[in-house]
Design a protein around this nucleic acid. Structure first.
Lengths: 145, 145
DNA sequence: TATTGTTATACTCTATAACTATA
DNA sequence: TATAGTTATAGAGTATAACAATA
């Protein structure tokens, strides 16, 4: 046995702290989602923008940023990545604002993102026992309330 | 009304996705905890190490890293920060390993950390309606299972 | 005057590679 | 040979400040 100068390593330290568990669960979930989206060469944030545009239709960069809590300065490289693979286009609205719209290729990518994320969300919920499952989303919504 | 070229901004986009909500909730929670711990000039990860040492007693750096899922390379600056404020000491076990132990000052800091985190965890759970509250930790544990 | 989009920059967290000294 | 601790470094997310152009 290695690595036990001071006793056994228990699997989950600080496991009475909901905040600690919440952080761990989110971190593990994000890592798994990132891995699944990697086959599309998309980051989680990239895929989230595609999903948002699919849900809402065309939006400006600042609208996307407000919806997803991404600072406008950080929207620039994100949209540049999506534009670099021709998933989105910037179309002038006036001389100040521009619409971010999905291209045909972007809509095709969105379909794949939707397939991956809906499977992922099913798997995620599926790991929660039935008796607790229906309480999970309401609890998260309450925390965000 | 500003910022609505393309319609109303709804508060929570993609709100049917548990993974998205989990990420948001964890992010908001971490930001709030970081803010509360800032009065002690401690980062969340620093405070977590103090809590772990308080729970387990002396541990090696690699043991702490394994318990908290922190790579050994990233433990170095973390422990350096705690040592810089004299919260911990490195005590040689043999010529290869060293025990990380709380100093008197570290134990005093731990008491303040415990006060802040227990209040924080109470507040966190308190935001979840009674009918869902008891299901929250079991659901998170299931996700981490 | 406030907002949009942008550039530059910096900090935090996390990850890998490589190294030494030792078990 | 495997482990402990360390250094250096890089990627990713996130934050602020400042700016030009426009509403």
């Amino acid at each position: 046995m290695v690595n036990s100068f001071f006793g056994e390593i228990v699997p989950l330290p600080l496991s009475t702290l909901p905040g600690f568990l919440l952080r761990r669960a989110a971190s593990a979930m994000m890592a798994e989602l990132a891995e699944r989206l990697a086959v599309l060469d998309l980051r989680v944030s990239d895929a989230t923008v595609l999903l948002l545009l699919g849900e809402r239709g065309a939006m400006t960069s600042s609208e996307i940023g407000k919806a997803l809590e991404i600072k406008s300065a950080n929207m620039v490289p994100l949209l540049n990545r999506l534009a670099a693979v021709s998933a989105i286009e910037r179309r002038p609205i006036d001389r100040k604002s521009q619409a971010i719209v999905l291209t045909a290729s972007g809509r095709a990518a969105l379909l794949q993102v939707q397939e991956i994320t809906s499977k992922f969300e099913d798997d995620l919920l599926g790991r929660i026992p039935h008796s607790h499952r229906e309480h999970f989303v309401p609890a998260l919504l309450a925390l965000l309330g």
